[in-house]
């Protein structure tokens, strides 16, 4: 990780990157400006109601999880995939096992853990393009 970051910081390319990176923010600003937060009678949008299927102790206090879960997951993913470190306290599958809805078995879907909060915060949720959002899912595959 550190070496990678070193390359990155040494790069004058980061100039270009920051310019390009600004684009999503500008777009987000456009997208957010007519958001319900500022609309109508001036009251805030209701916070999402999140169903926690298995209440209990998380790996860190809720406050910290809320703020830092993305960084925790990002560092863990690089350690696990690139270095091969297994058995870390932070795992996406761990999140899913506890937080998947009891009804649908998934962390996605309206009112379910990941999606409801990400929808509220208007943050793109990219994990489940590849990761399985359902707890205890058994893959079967099909014959080619």
């Amino acid at each position: 990780m550190n070496k990678r970051e070193a390359i990155f910081s040494a790069f004058p390319l980061c100039l270009c990157v920051s310019v390009v990176r600004f684009v999503p923010f500008a777009l987000a600003l456009l997208a957010v400006s007519p958001a319900p937060t500022f609309a109508g009678d001036g009251t805030r949008t209701d916070k999402p109601v999140i169903e926690i299927a298995k209440p209990g102790k998380c790996i860190a206090p809720a406050e910290e999880m809320r703020r830092n879960h993305m960084d925790m997951l990002k560092h863990q993913r690089d350690r696990t995939l690139r270095l091969g470190i297994r058995g870390e306290p932070v795992t996406l599958n761990g999140c899913i096992e506890c937080h998947a809805s009891q009804k649908t078995g998934s962390v996605l879907g309206e009112g379910n853990f990941c999606q409801s909060c990400h929808a509220y915060a208007a943050v793109k949720l990219d994990c489940f393009e590849c990761h399985q959002p359902k707890a205890g899912f058994k893959a079967t595959g099909v014959k080619p």
Partner: peptide, 8 residues
């Protein structure tokens, strides 16, 4: 596409 610029 940003990844193409941040990872070389």
């Amino acid at each position: 596409i940003i990844v193409a610029m941040t990872h070389f």
